[in-house]
Design a protein around this nucleic acid. Structure first.
Ligand SMILES: [Zn+2]
Ligand SMILES: [Zn+2]
Ligand SMILES: [Zn+2]
Ligand SMILES: [Zn+2]
Lengths: 175, 175
DNA sequence: CGGATATATGTAATGTTATAACATATCAAC
DNA sequence: GTTGATATGTTATAACATTACATATATCCG
C-alpha cells in the first residue's frame, strides 16, 4: 500500500482514472452523475488535499453551479455515500477517494454493512504542514480494536482512522 | 482490555478514581485544577457518554460557572491537553478518559511526541443507539497504518481511531 | 407520448460548533 | 508586595451543517 499523495506520480492520469471510475460506478447503478456532483469530485481531485464544504461552495458559486450550502453538502453527501470521496473527521473536510478499490464496493452503499466482515477500512495520513491527505487501508479484525469490539459484543459498522503528522517533505523542511 | 462503558461496574468508584487521578496529575505538575475544570470533568464522568461543548456549557451556566462558549472550550482544552478527557472527532464531542494509564503519560503534554514510539493509541467504540462511548487502546506500529506511515516516511504524531456501531444492549433491543 | 413517481436542485432561514480579541482577575514565585 | 504567568469574563464573529419547502428534471411504465 503506497501513500500516493506523498509520491511523485502522474496526477493527470490519477484524476482521469478516478473520474472514469466514478462514471462507471454511477452508470452501473443508474445513479445520476450530474454536473455539480462531477465538478465537486473534480475539485477534490485537483490536489491530494482535504477541502472544506465552503471552499468547494466558493468554487461552485463562481461557476454558477449553486450558491447555497446545500449545493455543496448534497454533492458531497452523494460522493461520500458512493465511496467516491471521504469525509476527514479530524478536519471537518472532504477528500476524493484515492483508492480504486473503494469506489465500487466499500462505501456504506451496502446498507447495514458490518465493517468487521472484511478488513477494508480506509485510513488517512494527514500532514499538518502542507495539509496533504494520503489514503491507505487498515485492517480492523486483526488489530486490537476488532478484538476489543468482539470481546465487548460491539458490532462495528463504520471505522474512522486518521493519523496526523508530518509528511516527508514537510519534515525535511524543518517543521 | 475491557470496554468499561458496556459492562456493569461500580461507576461511583469509577468517577472517584478518575477525579483522584486528575488531582494527582495536576498536583504533580503544578497545574491548577480549578473549580470549572474539575466540574467539567465531573460532568463528563457522570456517564460514559460524549457530550458537546454546548451541553457542558449549559450545565456550567446553570451553576454560575460561566455562560459563554470559551468557559467550556477552555476547560475542555485543558482536560484534553492533559489527557484527562478525549475529543471524539466523529461526534464533535468530548468524553472523560476512562483509562487510568492515559492520564499521566499518554496525552500530547509531552510536546513533540511521536505516536509510533509506543503503541498506546486511544480508540473508541461509539454506540449510535445509546451514544455510549467505550474507550480502549489500539496498537499503531503493529498494524497496517504504522506500516504505511513508515513506508511513506510519514511521522505520526496523533492518531484518531473511532468505531461506530451498536453496543450489545442496543443490538439486543433491535436497533 | 403522457402521466406518475422518484430524484435532484433552488432558496431562505436557522442551527451547531468553535475561535479571536481584549479586558480583568487570580495565582505563584521571588 | 511586586511581578510575571495563568486563568477567566465578555463581546463578537467565524466556520461548519441542516431543516423546510418550492421547483425542476429525470426515469419508468402503460
Ligand atoms: Zn494524484
Ligand atoms: Zn506535508
Ligand atoms: Zn464508570
Ligand atoms: Zn448502545
Amino acid at each position: 500500500m503506497t501513500a500516493l499523495a506523498f509520491d511523485r506520480h502522474n496526477h493527470d492520469r490519477c484524476i482521469a482514472g478516478a473520474l472514469k471510475r466514478a462514471e462507471t460506478h454511477c452508470g452501473a447503478r443508474r445513479l445520476q452523475f450530474t454536473a455539480t456532483r462531477r465538478r465537486v469530485l473534480e475539485i477534490l481531485l485537483q490536489e491530494h488535499r482535504a477541502m472544506g464544504a465552503y471552499d468547494i461552495l466558493a468554487v461552485l458559486s463562481s461557476e454558477g453551479l449553486g450558491s447555497q450550502p446545500p449545493a455543496a453538502y448534497r454533492a458531497l453527501d452523494f460522493l461520500v455515500r458512493e465511496g467516491l470521496a471521504h469525509r476527514i473527521e479530524g478536519l471537518n473536510a472532504y477528500a476524493a477517494c484515492a483508492l480504486p478499490v473503494h469506489g465500487p464496493g466499500h462505501g456504506p452503499e451496502h446498507g447495514q454493512e458490518d465493517a468487521s466482515d472484511h478488513g477494508h477500512v480506509p485510513a488517512f495520513l494527514i500532514c499538518r504542514g502542507c495539509k496533504a491527505v494520503a489514503e491507505t487501508e487498515t485492517g480492523l479484525a486483526q488489530g486490537r480494536l476488532g478484538a476489543a469490539a468482539r470481546e465487548a459484543g460491539f458490532s462495528v459498522e463504520r471505522v474512522v482512522v486518521e493519523a496526523e503528522g508530518l509528511c516527508p517533505g514537510c519534515a525535511g523542511a524543518g517543521a
